[in-house]
């Protein structure tokens, strides 16, 4: 179960629904001094109160690994989401590293909601955690919340997406540009340095744009290759499928597609398969190396390779950076976790 902690710190106020007995409704003698108390008698109020109650009660329910030591550090973590492999692995890395060091974790997820994530960070500040790890929902928007934590002398580490316009102890992230470049390099080798390729991107996100741009830049260095189309797949499979359909239709000569994440890659794979494209004639390069994509790669489909991030490493190194900070050792302000290519030969 996901925990909503937004209301955790607030006192639960049970509204006095009977401020105006119903028998007196309609009489104005008592009503004059009453400022719309009836609004509180609304059933909605009861629901709100109940939700706040649940939030308050479950506030302490999700503390992961803990140890009995008196000097245990408490680290607040707000993920971007818990519904994607990438962040599940990142979470696992954080948990493992924290368990090794005996840190106690308070785990939450922003669920793509900036306001929610800001509230979570503010909550950590109120709870006086010793440090915060944040996977920003929005690189610009999270700045002020991080500033508030820093002002309260709580060190913050960003994991994955970087936070812009604020100061963090360390920014731990994959190198998305390096990933895009790596994908282009693989594509060039697979196509024998010639041919038309396309990109299924997700221009709404910075990571998507970085990967796409690095890929396009690298292909541009090869005169016999060309990027003939860049379409938006929205990072989801069904939209990517439709984009790939259109690309394949409009460019029969196309020999390869780079997809900025695996959902897009698997959508492109479905489109290519329907059109009879096999690994012999077509190359798709994906990103993230999710189990489903890796399985497709191992089965020698046209999805031939993936750029793999190492989310576990990102998680572990975030904790490591905090450990160094606690021990007053020097901490690199930018920690780049390398990416690698996974293909059918990778064990």
């Amino acid at each position: 179960m996901r925990t909503r902690r937004a209301g955790a710190g607030l006192p639960v106020r049970v509204p006095n629904a009977d401020a105006c007995p119903s028998a007196q409704r309609g009489r104005r003698c008592t009503a004059r001094r009453r400022v719309r108390t009836e609004a509180l008698g609304n059933p909605l109020t009861a629901v709100v109160a109940a939700v706040m109650c649940i939030a308050a009660c479950s506030g302490s329910g999700d503390h992961a690994a803990s140890s009995g030591g008196a000097v245990t550090k408490v680290v607040g973590v707000t993920l971007l989401t818990r519904e994607q492999h990438f962040y599940q692995d990142l979470e696992a890395g954080v948990k493992d590293a924290a368990a090794r060091r005996g840190y106690r974790l308070v785990l939450t997820s922003g669920d793509f909601d900036l306001a929610k994530q800001q509230a979570q960070i503010d909550n950590f500040v109120v709870q006086h955690v010793d440090a915060i790890i944040v996977c920003p929902v929005n690189s610009q928007g999270i700045g002020p919340a991080i500033d508030r934590a820093t002002a309260a002398h709580i060190p913050v580490v960003s994991a994955d997406t970087k936070a812009v316009g604020t100061h963090v102890v360390a920014a731990v992230a994959s190198d998305n540009r390096a990933g895009g470049q790596l994908a282009a390099t693989y594509m060039v080798r697979a196509l024998g340095d010639s041919g038309a390729v396309a990109v299924i991107g997700q221009p709404e996100t910075q990571t998507g744009l970085d990967r796409q741009q690095a890929f396009v830049d690298e292909i541009g260095r090869h005169p016999r290759m060309a990027v003939v189309a860049i379409l938006n797949g929205g990072g989801v499979r069904d939209r990517a499928l439709k984009a790939a359909d259109d690309i394949l239709q409009g460019h029969p000569e196309l020999r390869g597609i780079f997809a900025i994440n695996d959902e897009s890659a698997l959508g492109a794979l479905a489109a290519a398969t329907t059109r009879g494209k096999t690994g012999a004639t077509f190359t798709i390069v994906g990103y993230d190396a999710t189990p489903e994509a890796v399985k497709a790669i191992k089965s020698h489909s046209s999805l031939k390779a993936d750029v793999a991030q190492q989310p576990r490493d990102i998680g572990e190194r975030s904790i490591d950076a905090l450990a160094a900070y606690f021990d007053h050792r020097p901490v690199d302000s930018v920690i780049t976790v390398p990416v690698r290519v996974v293909d059918a030969e990778t064990p």
Partner: peptide
Amino acid sequence: LGASIDLDT
């Protein structure tokens, strides 16, 4: 009007 009506409802 001499009416009794809750002015806030």
